[in-house]
Protein backbone atom coordinates (compact mmCIF):
# COMPACT_ATOMS: atom_id res chain seq x y z
CA UNK A 1 0.00 0.00 0.00
CA UNK A 2 1.17 3.43 -0.94
CA UNK A 3 1.68 5.58 2.10
CA UNK A 4 -0.90 8.29 2.20
CA UNK A 5 0.49 11.76 1.78
CA UNK A 6 -0.29 14.28 4.41
CA UNK A 7 -3.64 15.86 3.68
CA UNK A 8 -4.69 13.17 1.22
CA UNK A 9 -8.17 12.09 1.92
CA UNK A 10 -9.24 8.52 2.31
CA UNK A 11 -10.82 8.10 -1.12
CA UNK A 12 -11.49 4.54 -2.32
CA UNK A 13 -9.76 3.54 -5.59
CA UNK A 14 -11.66 4.79 -8.62
CA UNK A 15 -13.44 7.38 -6.50
CA UNK A 16 -16.10 4.79 -5.73
CA UNK A 17 -19.01 6.01 -3.67
CA UNK A 18 -19.96 3.00 -1.56
CA UNK A 19 -23.27 4.26 -0.22
CA UNK A 20 -25.98 4.11 -2.89
CA UNK A 21 -28.20 7.16 -3.00
CA UNK A 22 -26.03 9.07 -0.53
CA UNK A 23 -27.31 12.32 -2.07
CA UNK A 24 -30.41 11.68 0.03
CA UNK A 25 -28.30 12.92 2.92
CA UNK A 26 -27.63 16.21 1.14
CA UNK A 27 -30.20 18.92 1.67
CA UNK A 28 -31.32 20.98 -1.31
CA UNK A 29 -34.35 22.40 0.48
CA UNK A 30 -32.48 25.65 1.02
CA UNK A 31 -32.68 26.37 -2.73
CA UNK A 32 -36.38 26.95 -2.35
CA UNK A 33 -38.07 30.34 -2.57
CA UNK A 34 -41.58 28.95 -2.83
CA UNK A 35 -42.92 26.01 -0.85
CA UNK A 36 -45.56 23.61 -2.17
CA UNK A 37 -48.59 23.13 0.03
CA UNK A 38 -51.19 20.48 -0.74
CA UNK A 39 -54.87 20.65 0.10
CA UNK A 40 -55.49 16.98 0.84
CA UNK A 41 -59.28 17.54 0.71
CA UNK A 42 -58.97 18.47 -2.96
CA UNK A 43 -56.21 15.99 -3.90
CA UNK A 44 -57.45 13.01 -5.93
CA UNK A 45 -54.17 11.05 -5.62
CA UNK A 46 -53.69 10.97 -9.39
CA UNK A 47 -49.92 11.10 -8.66
CA UNK A 48 -49.12 13.36 -11.62
CA UNK A 49 -47.13 15.55 -9.20
CA UNK A 50 -45.19 12.51 -8.05
CA UNK A 51 -44.18 11.38 -11.54
CA UNK A 52 -43.22 14.88 -12.72
CA UNK A 53 -41.17 15.88 -9.65
CA UNK A 54 -37.49 16.39 -10.54
CA UNK A 55 -36.39 15.98 -6.94
CA UNK A 56 -38.18 12.77 -5.95
CA UNK A 57 -39.77 15.00 -3.32
CA UNK A 58 -43.44 14.08 -3.55
CA UNK A 59 -44.07 11.44 -0.91
CA UNK A 60 -46.42 8.62 -1.84
CA UNK A 61 -47.48 5.92 0.59
CA UNK A 62 -49.82 3.05 -0.31
CA UNK A 63 -50.84 4.83 -3.51
CA UNK A 64 -51.69 8.09 -1.74
CA UNK A 65 -49.92 11.42 -2.01
CA UNK A 66 -49.15 12.29 1.60
CA UNK A 67 -46.99 15.41 1.26
CA UNK A 68 -43.58 16.74 0.31
CA UNK A 69 -40.00 15.94 1.22
CA UNK A 70 -38.95 19.51 1.99
CA UNK A 71 -35.33 18.50 2.61
CA UNK A 72 -35.02 17.95 -1.14
CA UNK A 73 -37.81 19.98 -2.77
CA UNK A 74 -36.22 22.91 -4.67
CA UNK A 75 -39.54 24.70 -5.04
CA UNK A 76 -39.68 24.56 -8.85
CA UNK A 77 -43.48 24.52 -8.80
CA UNK A 78 -43.93 21.79 -11.43
CA UNK A 79 -46.25 19.90 -9.04
CA UNK A 80 -48.54 22.92 -8.68
CA UNK A 81 -48.44 23.67 -12.42
CA UNK A 82 -49.13 20.08 -13.46
CA UNK A 83 -51.82 19.33 -10.89
CA UNK A 84 -54.85 18.81 -13.18
CA UNK A 85 -56.93 21.93 -13.87
CA UNK A 86 -60.05 20.40 -12.32
CA UNK A 87 -58.19 19.62 -9.10
CA UNK A 88 -55.55 22.32 -8.45
CA UNK A 89 -54.79 20.98 -4.99
CA UNK A 90 -51.23 22.33 -4.76
CA UNK A 91 -50.33 25.96 -4.12
CA UNK A 92 -46.89 27.53 -3.98
CA UNK A 93 -46.42 29.77 -0.95
CA UNK A 94 -43.60 32.15 -0.01
CA UNK A 95 -41.04 30.59 2.30
CA UNK A 96 -41.30 32.30 5.68
Amino acid sequence: MKKEKEGERDVPPGGVIREAGSAHGYSTGGWRKLRPVVDSEKCTNCLICWVMCPDSAVVVKDGKMIGFDLEHCKGCGICAAECPDKVKAIKMEEEG
Binding site: G21, S22, A23, H24, G25, Y26, S27, T28, W31, R32, C46, L47, I48, W50, V51, P54, D55, S56, A57, V60, G63, D69, E71, H72, C73, K74, G75, C76, G77, I78
Partner: peptide, 20 residues
Protein backbone atom coordinates in the same frame (compact mmCIF):
# COMPACT_ATOMS: atom_id res chain seq x y z
CA UNK B 1 -48.90 5.65 -11.71
CA UNK B 2 -49.93 3.81 -8.53
CA UNK B 3 -48.05 0.73 -9.71
CA UNK B 4 -45.02 2.79 -10.69
CA UNK B 5 -45.05 4.65 -7.37
CA UNK B 6 -45.02 1.31 -5.52
CA UNK B 7 -41.64 0.49 -7.08
CA UNK B 8 -38.38 1.51 -5.42
CA UNK B 9 -37.15 5.06 -5.95
CA UNK B 10 -33.76 4.38 -7.51
CA UNK B 11 -32.92 8.05 -8.09
CA UNK B 12 -32.71 9.98 -4.84
CA UNK B 13 -33.41 13.61 -4.15
CA UNK B 14 -30.51 15.77 -3.03
CA UNK B 15 -28.87 15.80 -6.47
CA UNK B 16 -27.63 19.16 -7.72
CA UNK B 17 -29.62 19.41 -10.98
CA UNK B 18 -31.40 22.76 -11.39
CA UNK B 19 -34.80 23.49 -9.96
CA UNK B 20 -37.32 22.50 -12.62
Amino acid sequence: LKELAAKDELFSGGHRLCSG
